[in-house]
Design a protein around this nucleic acid. Structure first.
Lengths: 228, 228
DNA sequence: GAGCTTGAAAATGTATCCAATCCTCGTTTA
DNA sequence: TAAACGAGGATTGGATACATTTTCAAGCTC
C-alpha cells in the first residue's frame, strides 16, 4: 500500500518551526525599515541577533527571498531587495490589475461590522498622523476591504506586493505634498463609499484609479530610487 | 584582464550551489508529473535520488514551497502542492488579469524573427501531438509571446502561476474533447494574428477570453479535483 | 608608480550527529 | 467489541564542525 494521501494539508499555511519565527522577525525588521533596501545581510549577524544557528537563518532568508524581500546570490551573500523605479512601477501595474479583483471577491463577504470600521479609518488618516501611523492605518484600511475574501492565493499575492513596496510607500509618504495627500484621502473615502453602497464596479474603478495615480506619482520622484 | 576563467573540463556554470540544482530537478520532476499533487515527499528519498545530503534538499523544498509547488508542515513533512477547484479557478482569475498586461508590455519588444515563430507553433499544435508535446508547445507559444518583456517581476509571477497549474493543464488536455480543442486552436491563431498586426488591445482581449474560457472549462470537470 | 598576482581572512555551502516532534500500532479497559 | 491510552519507531529540525568559494589587501613585477 502506498499510503500517500495521508492528510491534505490544504488548510495548513503554517511556516516551518523556528525558522518561521526568524522569518517573521526579519520580515518585520525589513518592513519597519530597520534593514534598508540594498543593505547586506550577513547570516552570522542574524544568527546572533535572533539567538539561533545559521541554519534556520538560511531557511528564513530563502523564505523571504521567495517573497521578494531578499536577494540571495550563491556563495556571495544576501541583500535586502531593492527595487528600481521601473520594477516598482511594474509592481504597481500588477497591483492595478490584481487588487480590484481581490476587492470584488471580498465585497460579498464583508459583514456590517467590518464595513462600519471603514469610514473611521479614513477619518483617522485625515488627522495627519505620523508617517508610521499613517502607513499602518493605510494598510489596515485596504486589508480590511480585502478581508471578506477567503482567498488564499490572491490574498497572499497582494500581501507580498504590498511588502515589497513597503519601503517606497514610506519614502513617498515622507515627502508627500498636501495636495497629493488630500487626493489620497478623497480616493479612500470614495472607495469606502462605493463599498458601503455595494457597488463592485465602482469600487473596482476607484481602487484602480487610486493605485494608478500612486504609480504615476512614482515617476515624479525618481530621486527616491537613485540614492542607493 | 582579471582572468580566472580557466576551468577544468567540468565547467560548472554560475548556478553554483547544489541546492539550486536539486530545486531545478525537483521542480522538473513535479512539472513532468513524476511527483503527483498530494504525494508525500520524504527528504531522505530525495537526498538519495539526487545524490546529496538532506540539507540542500531542505533548501530546495523551501524554495519550491515559496513557488507554491510544495507544502511543508512543521515537524511533519512535505507534500506536492494540491489545488482545489476553487483555488485553481482563483489562479486562472489572476492569470486573466495579469497575463494580458504582460503581453501588452511584451509586444513592443518582439522582433520580426520572434513573431515569425508564432504561427508555425500554432500549426504544430493543430497536428494533434501527444499530450506532453502539446503541453510543451502550448507553453512555448505563450512564453514566446511574453518574451519581449524584460520584466522580471511580472514574468516570474506568470511563470509561477503556470507552474502551479501545470498538472491540471495536463489532466484537462488528456480529457479534452475535439470541440474544445478546436476552440483552443482558434484562440491561439487569433492571438498570434493580433500580435502580428500590432494590435495590443485586441491581443489583450483575445488572451483574456482564452484564459477565461479555460477557467470556465474547469467547472465542467470537477472530478479532476475530487480524485485526490 | 600602476597593475596584476597571490595569499590570507571571512562568509557561504555542505555533511554528520543529536534532539524534538509526530505517526503507527499494540495494549488495556469500560 | 470498540475506543482511549501509551510506548516504540520513524522522520524532521537544529547545532556544531568542516570544505569551498569569494573577496580584500598586501606584495611583487614591469
Amino acid at each position: 500500500m502506498t499510503g500517500h494521501e495521508d492528510r491534505s494539508p490544504t488548510t495548513v499555511e503554517k511556516t516551518a518551526g523556528s525558522a518561521g519565527r526568524i522569518a517573521d522577525a526579519l520580515r518585520a525588521d525589513i518592513l519597519s525599515g530597520a534593514f534598508a533596501p540594498g543593505e547586506r545581510i550577513r547570516q552570522e549577524v542574524l544568527a546572533e541577533r535572533y539567538g539561533a544557528s545559521r541554519l534556520p537563518v538560511r531557511d528564513a532568508l530563502r523564505a523571504l527571498e521567495a517573497e521578494g524581500l531578499v536577494i540571495m546570490v550563491p556563495n556571495t551573500g544576501a541583500w535586502v531587495a531593492k527595487l528600481s523605479l521601473e520594477e516598482c512601477q511594474e509592481v504597481y501595474q500588477v497591483r492595478e490589475r490584481v487588487e480590484p479583483l481581490l476587492l470584488r471577491m471580498s465585497m460579498p463577504g464583508l459583514d456590517a461590522e467590518t464595513r462600519d470600521r471603514l469610514l473611521p479609518l479614513v477619518e483617522a488618516m485625515r488627522q495627519e498622523p505620523q508617517v508610521e501611523e499613517f502607513l499602518r492605518l493605510d494598510r489596515e484600511f485596504h486589508m480590511l476591504t480585502y478581508s471578506g475574501a477567503e482567498s488564499t492565493i490572491l490574498g497572499d499575492l497582494v500581501e507580498r506586493l504590498w511588502n515589497t513596496t513597503q519601503h517606497y510607500r514610506r519614502a513617498f509618504t515622507l515627502l508627500g505634498t498636501e495636495r497629493t495627500s488630500r487626493t489620497v484621502h478623497l480616493e479612500h473615502e470614495m472607495l469606502a463609499l462605493a463599498i458601503l453602497r455595494d457597488d463592485p464596479d465602482g469600487a473596482e474603478r476607484v481602487l484602480l484609479g487610486h493605485i494608478s495615480s500612486t504609480r504615476l506619482e512614482l515617476s515624479r520622484h525618481p530621486e527616491v530610487f537613485h540614492r542607493l
